[in-house]
Design a protein around this nucleic acid. Sequence first.
RNA 1: GCCGCUGUAGCUCAGUUGGUUAGAGCACCAGAUUGUGGAUCUGGGGGUCCCCCGUUCAAGCCGGGGCAGCGGUA
Length: 376
Amino acid sequence: MSDPFAFSLITTSGDARLGEIATPRGAIRTPAFMPVGTAGTVKALYPDQVKAAGADIVLGNTYHLMLRPGAERVARLGGLHKFMRWDGPILTDSGGFQVMSLKGLRKLTEDGVTFQSHIDGSTHTMSPERSIEIQCLLGADIQMQLDECIELPATQERATAAMELSLRWAERCKRAFERFGKPGQALFGIVQGATDLELRRRSAQELAGMNFDGYAVGGLAVGEGQDAMLATLDGTLAHLPSSKPRYLMGVGTPVDIIEAVARGIDMFDCVMPTRSGRHGQAFTWGGKVNLKNARHAEDTAPLDANSMCPAARDYSRAYLHHLMKSGEYLGPMLLSWANTAFYQDLMAAIRQAIAENRYADFVSEHRAALSGNEAV
RNA sequence: GCCGCUGUAGCUCAGUUGGUUAGAGCACCAGAUUGUGGAUCUGGGGGUCCCCCGUUCAAGCCGGGGCAGCGGUA
């Protein structure tokens, strides 16, 4: 029987890769953008909308789901897919990002992380083994190793220690996954090493030697700036096997994405389309649009008349402005929808440009407009 | 009519024994946001301190008169 999880590279354009990841729950077209559904929901959207927007896979989060409703409970309820009514693939983050983002509420040891719940203050521990066990209880199709993600800039000592700890945890996650994982499920390793190319090389090569199903680049877009991020990517991807998917974690803006694809990244996730949407910012081919700005108050134009997404196509900017200014629920719903659709449209356009071997032209065509605010 | 209280930013209010350029929260106008704590952060514009007169080197603050609002009262 062939491995039900498999990455196939279809074609390339420069270093940009067009591919497909086969999973038992369906294919993931790459380069892919994975909407973030931390707590078992892509916030403010129905699963059907996420699917219709073009997303093949969504994220869930180990840390959040273990606190509430609890991994064992989700398992008793039939797993995360059934629970949230998403039948496509799900990738779960391991909790590594919370190692960084909850820095006032956690303690780190060789064995794992002790978190204080942000919900009720209760104490929870998560080892690499427990993180994998939880991800298996949730039923995640793609699971992530537990890692230590640090804020940048960081000292050499700090970056080295976090990278080396992440490698040791990678090994432990691999062994735990062999015990808990089911056929068709995949486990990704995570490259760390801040912006130090030598650390990144070591991390990538050692992970590659462990033979993961895919490789993530973690610890970027955390304060280092885009130039440093892209330089780090250049120095990292060369040391990862081209036969496996490469995932740039937590990234990013539309321009981050097109630049990272140009360097050979296959998968992305980011809270930006949904979080920004909840706060009034929309993404369009013409750049970012802040619907809270007064200039939209009487603008009868939609966000993007050419969009296939009703939220972007059928509602006036004036109405979206009003909803956001009034704090109405529909505002975040419509903008999360429009942004999720835009990100998927962006990925579709990226895939098409690679397929037609004109990716460099695509980047130069759209880079400037995507990088700033919409021209007024 | 009389008694009391109040009047400071769009709103709700603070403002010391009179002392530099009168503040806050919200609202407003913008900017940030990258493996989501439905969060947060950063800037900005905005004043006839109800009006007039007086005291004083100096008044949002003290005195007199007026106006307005609220409450009480025969």
